[in-house]
Write a protein that binds this DNA or RNA. Structure first.
Lengths: 337, 337
DNA sequence: TTGTATGCGTTATCAG
DNA sequence: CTGATAACGCATACAA
């Protein structure tokens, strides 16, 4: 990234004008084939690399698409990121990854940086309480919400029917005869946390049962929280006979803690996990999520919006949302009692 | 991102010159405090967002740092990406993630895109056989190699002593009395694949034993390969009593296959895994890697280089390399025979 | 303390 | 078929 070669250099070398060089490299048919080839040869020889910043300055648009997520170590977001990166690459865009760890300041910085780079689009899984500035910035961008849904943000959303997802897992356990069912979930400051807890509760009320609130633990969606919460659940007072882990990293934490405490699954405890990580071991009963489908739909939608926005800046489809369904995948971690 | 607000708009609104606005927003002390505040107020009101492309065009440098890796679903790279993103954010840079899936064409596109964006630096875990063009592009950039080491690339490298890592795991099994030890590893087209296999072999020769070549399986470093390879190892002919999984995703695949085949660990089979994923379950004997340390060292180094390159474009330290040591973490997946 | 002028690398318009 | 020129948004050297 030092003394970069520019169109000017090539032009001087060939005694041609800058515009001719630019057109030749863009394969403008108005330029004679011979010239085009000479230009390309010299460009290659000199190691010319276009300057996308300069290009963006004229068009007002870049080939950048931002993905802002709380946590890349979550298998779920990892899969999403991979799928989106693929889609972007195929469409000639580059994916810029921002990781917030759910910190609103970090989130604001990431969003601002992306807008400064004139990113053509943004995909965001927002933190529980984004700053006013973040919301304002997002509202003026081509943006899509992923998974989590922030009330104050009037932009399209792609996510999962979380309520139904957790409902199905919980109902499965109730059907197997479990009553003392524990719940490890994200705090209800998150839209996903609220929906998932609602699904848990509905499974009980539908079955005419009391919701076992003493077995419900809400916190940060990280393995450490789940491990700690499960330990307290297992150690203090009456034990649950089953647990619903309502999050990918919560499932990891639960399994870690169970292993550490020597809890046999499903002999001592039935477990319903969240997501389809290949390492759920052994053979977990889990709530399967169509991660790839979501990423594809979301990516395609964003690309379409970006292309649309080009001619008419009509801000349509502002409230659009797409909900994907989950499916319960039976495994060996749940048993009848 | 539509009709963006520029310095000019603010200038017109306040009847000031563009340069005054620019200086005020940059907190230039030469501008009176009163003016600075008025300018900032209007900037906020209008929703001004700086144009990093234009800025980069003048400075020749952007706030982008590229990370090019084969596979984000690998826990190992996920942790690396997270740590690097953090470091970048703290230093005012943004991390641009490129995923190659070890495809040389995709890799070339990613690298080119990053150079076009005038990324200030690049961190790359290169594919087995990068294109000539990729190598040429990289050699003209501020670049650091991560983990894998490509011979044709004369740039600094940060990685692990892979040979020692696998040697320690293998020696551990030999010490426990195992002789029929299987090896699941990446193909030797990768520098890591070569080093790891060498470590496996040295453990045997040092102990005065034959290398059990019939138990060695090399392929793509993905779970699917490991699962398939282990199945053949377990099904055809004499069975190994232990396995070394020489890669993160290979460990995942091995454990999956073992579960599927009903192989009890460590009763039927001892296992040494690679890396410290929190879901190695149960309690794997594993080769622990200082992932975070590597990322930090690599990130700091790159940032230093970027800052240095600014004034003097001396291309020093071209061949520098830093090797990190691993440690064998004993678990419950290996036993004496 | 503020304003003017210039140029960064491209592309688009207009002219030859 | 090719060239000259302007403009994109910003930073900075130089004036005032």
């Amino acid at each position: 990234m030092s003394g970069a070669v520019t169109l000017k250099h090539i032009a001087e070398r060939l005694n041609l004008s800058i515009s001719t060089i630019g057109r030749a490299l863009a394969d403008d048919p108005q330029i004679s084939l011979a010239t085009r080839e000479r230009v390309k040869a010299v460009a290659g020889e000199l190691g010319y690399v276009a300057h996308s910043g300069a290009r963006a300055m004229r068009s007002g648009r870049s080939t950048l698409i931002g993905l802002i997520i709380p946590d890349i170590q979550n298998e779920f977001y990892g899969t999403l990121a991979k799928a989106l990166a693929e889609i972007c690459a195929n469409a000639g865009f580059q994916l810029v990854l921002g990781i917030t760890e759910d910190d609103p300041e970090s989130e604001e910085r990431q969003v601002r940086g992306l807008l400064e780079a004139r990113a053509s689009g943004l995909v965001i899984t927002a933190s529980p309480r984004p700053t006013r500035e973040t919301l304002s910035l997002l509202s003026r961008s081509t943006c899509v919400q992923l998974i989590r849904r922030t009330g104050q943000l009037e932009v399209p959303w792609f996510g999962i029917d979380e309520e139904a997802a957790i409902h199905s897992g919980t109902a499965h356990l109730i059907e197997l005869g479990h009553r003392r069912i524990g719940y490890l979930g994200a705090s209800t400051t998150l839209s996903t946390g609220r929906s998932r807890l609602a699904g848990f509760e509905r499974a009980f009320t539908e079955a005419g049962l009391e919701v076992p609130r003493e077995f419900v633990r809400l916190g940060r969606p990280r393995a450490a929280f789940a491990a700690e919460a499960f330990e307290s659940l297992w150690t203090d007072g009456e034990r649950p006979t089953a647990i619903v882990a309502a999050g990918a990293r919560l499932t990891v934490g639960l399994l870690q803690a169970a292993t550490r405490l020597g809890v046999a699954i499903p002999a001592d405890l039935s477990v319903v996990g969240y997501g389809d990580a290949p390492w759920w071991n052994p053979n977990l009963t889990t709530i399967s999520l169509p991660v790839r489908d979501i990423a594809l739909a979301c990516g395609e939608f964003l690309l379409r919006r970006i292309r649309e926005t080009e001619p008419s800046s009509a801000r349509s489809a502002a409230g659009q949302s797409v909900t994907f369904a989950s499916a319960l995948t039976p495994g060996a971690s749940t048993r009848r009692v």
